[in-house]
Structures are given as structure tokens and as C-alpha cells.
Computed example of a mutant assay.
Amino acid sequence: MTPTEAPPEHKGPRPLLFLDVDGPLNPYAAKPERRPEGYTTIRAAGRPFAWVEDEQSPADAEYVTRHHPARALLHHVDPRLGLRAPDFRALGQFAAGE
């Protein structure tokens, strides 16, 4: 099974989880020499994806709607609280196709 393939009991391609990480792991802001060894960016490429972010805007939702044909979840997380049980439930439901 490749990283994009889902296990046999799951229908469709495996969803991609995109966590917004500020600082040196940010693929758009970090210089390549500051990224950890083995760091890579993966594009959703038509797969369902969930984007966990503390600074989403209507422009982000519009871009995803216009350019990404697969299911997508733009999930806001309060940066003062971080990921909490309801966030994990929402992500789990999305990954399960609910």
C-alpha cells in the first residue's frame, strides 16, 4: 500500500491532513536549508484533504472551492487552545467520509 492508498476497508484515496505549522516547518516561508532532514511537502492532487489552520479566511475557502475538486475540510483551531477533542472528532469524521 502506498502513502496515498487507503486500506482495503476504506473507500477512495486516503485523505491528506495539512496542519498549519508556523516557523521553520512552513513550506512557504522556511528556506530549504532550515527545513529538517527528510522534510517534504505533499500536494493533495485530487485527494480529499483537511486543512487545520488558525488564520483561515474567506479567500482560502474560495480558492479551495475553485481549485480543488475533491472533498476538503477547512478547520479553524483557536491558537490559544490548540487541538482539542472536538477538533479530533471533526477530523476523524471527515477522514471517515462523514
Rank of each mutant, 00 (worst) to 15 (best):
71 R>F: 02
65 T>I: 01
80 R>F: 06
66 R>L: 03
87 D>R: 13
53 E>Q: 07
84 R>M: 12
90 A>V: 11
64 V>C: 07
61 A>C: 04
51 W>S: 00
44 A>S: 10
75 H>Y: 03
90 A>P: 00
49 F>W: 06
86 P>I: 15
87 D>H: 15
60 D>S: 01
55 E>F: 08
44 A>T: 01
54 D>Q: 14
70 A>M: 09
74 L>R: 06
50 A>V: 09
72 A>S: 06
42 I>R: 15
68 H>G: 01
86 P>L: 14
48 P>K: 14
72 A>T: 00
54 D>E: 09
81 L>T: 12
39 Y>V: 00
82 G>L: 11
67 H>I: 03
73 L>A: 00
85 A>W: 15
61 A>Y: 00
82 G>F: 14
67 H>C: 02
74 L>C: 01
46 G>W: 03
41 T>K: 12
64 V>P: 00
67 H>N: 08
77 V>D: 02
39 Y>N: 03
56 Q>N: 10
85 A>Q: 14
84 R>T: 13
51 W>R: 11
55 E>Y: 14
79 P>T: 10
54 D>W: 15
48 P>M: 07
43 R>S: 02
41 T>L: 12
77 V>T: 11
81 L>F: 10
67 H>M: 07
60 D>G: 00
87 D>G: 09
88 F>Q: 06
89 R>T: 11
51 W>H: 01
82 G>A: 10
53 E>Y: 05
45 A>W: 09
82 G>R: 14
75 H>P: 01
69 P>G: 09
76 H>F: 15
66 R>Y: 03
45 A>L: 12
74 L>W: 00
89 R>A: 04
56 Q>A: 04
59 A>S: 12
75 H>I: 02
68 H>Q: 12
49 F>Y: 12
87 D>I: 13
45 A>I: 07
45 A>G: 09
80 R>I: 06
90 A>G: 05
57 S>H: 05
88 F>G: 02
67 H>T: 03
46 G>H: 08
72 A>D: 04
